[in-house]
Nucleic acid binder design. Structure first.
Lengths: 161, 161
DNA sequence: ACCGGAAAGTTGGGGCTCCTACGATTTCGC
DNA sequence: GCGAAATCGTAGGAGCCCCAACTTTCCGGT
């Protein structure tokens, strides 16, 4: 995309000061992708409130709930995080009594992760927030575009991995 | 991280299913958005190499180049970063001799940012990488979908801000 | 049985980001 | 004018992320 995007067809919905130009910024797709992701992230955090769990933690709970007994390494792959990233996160969730880590006799290197009753309760509450967030996101994406939009995102993920 | 079958499919026959399931993960759009952004980010970093500048630094150079004399606060708004985030980044870029910060007599609180010749040279080199990255991204998005895809991302950004 | 390689999880180091608080400076309101 | 409010950039604290190195445990070949 070497062509110069000189704002011909697009109105600037982005919150930028007047007169500030994006320049070539060949990274158009990547740059915009980043801003959109961060906006979604911030909106979710705002919705769940200060004291609650952030999107990363929420994803962990969802994944453990859907895959009881999963190991930390498997979880890290599913969540798209490095396994070392999950160490403090799981320690925190365990400390809050939301997640249980028990040793597996069959393989004493790994942990089997499950949600506690409290964890399932928190997950249910958070899921309501997430559902509302998703409705907002769906409204912005447009129901008729959602499938194609997600498909495009998945192509990007698969194509760059 | 490659296989994400988001299907609401079948039950796992065993305690440890072969494929990890994403579960409800109502955050579908948000979650996928995040993974796609990170994949793009990582791919860009891989492309430019270890010693080079990362996407955030690159965006700074592009924006300064397109808006010579811009202030740090204006730049932070354009880049979508907090102004305090740019302090160390600009100190680094200034230390490398790529960016110049000079005081403005008219308003001695702010700096006027410009690229040095070396900064413009680095920007040119990085732009080639960025162009290649963008071509890859465009191929994944599909030229016929790109406009709609970017429009959707911008709706998300605007709608959640 | 033994040994080296692989894998699970942890630790430490580094990077980027945000938020809050703060001095310096400018601008606004009376 | 002059004090109050807003703005610019910086400093400190915190969170989340990755990678490399390490310990413990498992597994396969001999």
């Amino acid at each position: 995309m070497s062509e110069f995007h000189a704002g011909a067809g697009h109105e600037p919905p982005l919150d930028r000061p007047e007169g500030v130009r994006l320049g070539a910024l060949d990274e158009q797709v990547g740059f915009t992708l980043r801003l959109a992701q961060e906006a979604s992230f911030a909106a979710f955090a705002r919705r769940t409130g200060e004291a609650s769990l952030r999107p990363g933690r929420f994803a962990i709970l969802v994944l453990i709930d859907a895959n009881p007994g999963i190991s930390q390494t498997e979880l890290s792959a599913a969540a798209g995080r490095d396994k070392s990233t999950l160490t403090p996160a799981l320690a925190d969730l365990e400390g809050r009594g939301l997640v249980e880590r028990r040793r597996v006799p069959k393989d004493r290197r790994s942990y089997a992760l499950t949600l506690t009753d409290a964890g399932r309760k928190v997950l249910r509450t958070l899921s309501e927030h997430a559902a509302a967030h998703d409705r907002q996101l769906d409204a912005l994406v447009g129901e008729e575009n959602k499938a194609a939009f997600l498909a495009t995102l998945r192509r990007i993920i698969a194509g760059l991995s």
